[in-house]
Structure formats: C-alpha cells, structure tokens
Design a protein around this nucleic acid. Sequence first.
DNA 1: GTCTATATCGAGATAGAC
DNA 2: GTCTATCTCGATATAGAC
Lengths: 216, 216
Amino acid sequence: MGTKGEGNRQRIVSAADNLFYRNGYNQTSFQDISDATGIPRGNFYYYFKTKDEILNAVVDSRVAELSTMLQQCEAATADARERLHLFTDMLEFKRDDVLQSGCPIGTLSSELAKAHGAVNDDSASDGLRQDRSGQELSRPEISRQEKSKQVFLLLRDWVQKQFAALGVDDAADLAMDLLARMQGVTVMACAFKDADFMRRSHREINDWIDMKTRNA
Amino acid sequence: MGTKGEGNRQRIVSAADNLFYRNGYNQTSFQDISDATGIPRGNFYYYFKTKDEILNAVVDSRVAELSTMLQQCEAATADARERLHLFTDMLEFKRDDVLQSGCPIGTLSSELAKAHGAVNDDSASDGLRQDRSGQELSRPEISRQEKSKQVFLLLRDWVQKQFAALGVDDAADLAMDLLARMQGVTVMACAFKDADFMRRSHREINDWIDMKTRNA
DNA sequence: GTCTATATCGAGATAGAC
DNA sequence: GTCTATCTCGATATAGAC
C-alpha cells in the first residue's frame, strides 16, 4: 500500500481500539490488528516500539474522541442538567455494544488492574519486589492502569463541572456517584444480557440527577 | 508428595481461584498454579481435562462458598433488612482486595464477556460463523460466561428473596439495582484506588435499602 | 516506509515412565 | 497417582532486504 505513514498509524490505533474493546487488551494480538487493517505485523514496530505504546495511543484517542463528544454536549445546551442527560444517553446509543462487551472504559480499567506473574502471598516481604541485583522490577500493569485512568478522569471532571454549575455543594461526590451508577448498570446488563434493565436504569439515573439538582 | 488426590484437587482449585482473581483468567498460566501449589503442571490433566474445567470448578467453589456466607447471614438475623446490610458489609471486609483487583465476580464476568479471535465487522454474514465443513465454530467464551453468571444468579436470587420478605412489590428490580450499585462502586473505587469512596458509598447504599423498604 | 523471515519465549496440552 | 519430557502453537519482538 502506498498510503502515507500517519494514515496507517491512525488505522492501527482505530483497529486496536475496537479490538481492545471487543476482545480485551491481553487477548488482542498483533496478528489480529494486522488482519483488521491489512497492515503487516512487522510494520507496527515502525510506528510503536511496544504493545504498551499502542495502548497509550488508544487511550489518547479515546480521550480526544470523548472530549469532542463532551464539547458537543456543551454546545447543544447551556443547561447543565440537560447536558448530564445527554451524557447518560450513551447508555442508549451504545446499548448493543454494552450488552455484548460492557463499557469500554470500565472493562479496560478492570482488566488492567490485574497483575502479571506470581501472586505475592509472602507476608514477610511487604516492600517492592526486587531482582537479584536489588533493582525494582518494572511493573507495566501499574503504568497501564494509570494511563487508562485518564479517560475516567476526563469524564469525572466534566460531570463534576456540570453538577457544580447547578449549584450543588457536593459536586465531586455526585460525579463519582453518577459514573459508579453507570458502570454498575453496564456490568450487570452485560452479565445478564438484559436490555430492559439498561433502559429502566437509564430512566432512574436521570430521575436521580433531577432529584439531586432540584434546587437549581 | 504422598497426599491424597482429592486434597490436591482442592488445592489446585483454591490457588486458581485466587490467581484468576488477582491476575485474571486469561493471564493465569498452569505454571502460575503450579508455582502456587507445588504441584507439577502435568498433574493438572489428571484432575482436569482443560483449563475451562478448572474455571468450572472455581465457579462451583465460589458458589458453594457464597452459599455458606448467605446462609450465615440468614442464621445471624431473621430481619431481612438486617440481612441485606450484612450482605453489603462485603464492601468493608473486602475493601483492600477490591481496591487492588476489583470484585471477583464482576471482573471475571467482564473478562469472560470478551470474545476470542477476529472481530466480525462483516455485515453480510449475520448468522453463526461456520468453518469450511459448514459446522458451527465452538465459542468457548460463550459457555465460560454462562458459567460465571451462576455466581451473580445466586446473589440476585438471594437479594430478591430478602426484598420480597420485606413486602416490596418490585423485589426483582431492586435486587438488580443493589447488585449494580455495588458493582459500580467496586469498578470506580478500584480505578481511582479510593477507599473513602467505598466507605461513603457503603453508607449510602445502606440508606437506600432502608428507604426502599421503609414500609416494612 | 514497507514487507518477509525469523528469533525467542511461554502458552495449553500430551505421552509415557515410574 | 505422580512426575518429566516434549509437542505444537501463537505470542511479542527483531533483523534486514527492498
């Protein structure tokens, strides 16, 4: 293919984004991304040194895409309560995907919270693990989870801003509560493949938003 | 080791249970279980034909363990509202584990919801995938997720029973709502490593239970 | 910039001695 | 029942031709 390099980079990130969501990060191979894009495996190392760098690019891409979506929510209405309702509408737009694969942000975060290698049951050593030369062992899952957290941080801060605009005094708590409720709905709806539960919960979350911001 | 066989089987299941939780199912190797138990890799195939069978045994073990815990909740008090509060106390007992690795049930369910192999973007074929001989391809992730769902079903039915005993007319919905709220709390608390959020949410979930069952 | 060939490792699973 | 040796496959990653 004679297309320009940066175009290929974007296609890799886009395919990886989709595959990380559908199949999970650990279960997605370079071959899978190669099959989805038509770009040969070896070329990936021209754009990314490691699989972790692809993950970084995917998270950056998700942050950028969600930023755009949140800006559109702000452009659509000046009423912060309406903006929050537009935000929860994701439960409706993405219903089929959520039922099949859960929330892209939540499931990635949960997956990356899992460690690699042996489980440390040893109660004698409570410091960082060290190798024979005394250096700390690198733990990639730590930085990976920190990276994936960026998407949640973006959403939390935006939701908090909307609650604050409505004059509540616990906007930070309410922001975490809203995200937690949406996460809980996606986990249970996906586990039970229950679309009706998603619809009902969507309504009740909107009612909860209205109730919490009634004095605005 | 000259210990009896069934003892070894239990030790394998127990170690796998812990490793599936801390490291994830897909990221747990037979070598990891071997290291944790001292039982050589090859012996696993005397007790289990495949890794899937180990997963089945782990889920059965979790169902049995949780059944015991729920029976203890019932033995502790005849007040169904008190029983539900004892149930939510898991958010307190298991706080450190949840902060590190999330909920064992929810994260396993989310992990097993992810597919294997290529993502089907092809809109022309909307039936089951077939191989060249026309047979349906087996999709182990389907039966795996169905199996893991058993733990959620146990909890949902028990919670529903408690709500029903309190005379509410939407016990089934409330059971799903309670599990969803707890799942949401664990996902966000683990992502943000926020113990305070867990404590606060625990209180608010208990308040919500009391509110929903006020007329009992 | 693009692609093929390959190195290296660890996974799940099997065979067969004891 | 227990254990070692090994098979086969697919993973990430690298080397180097074009």
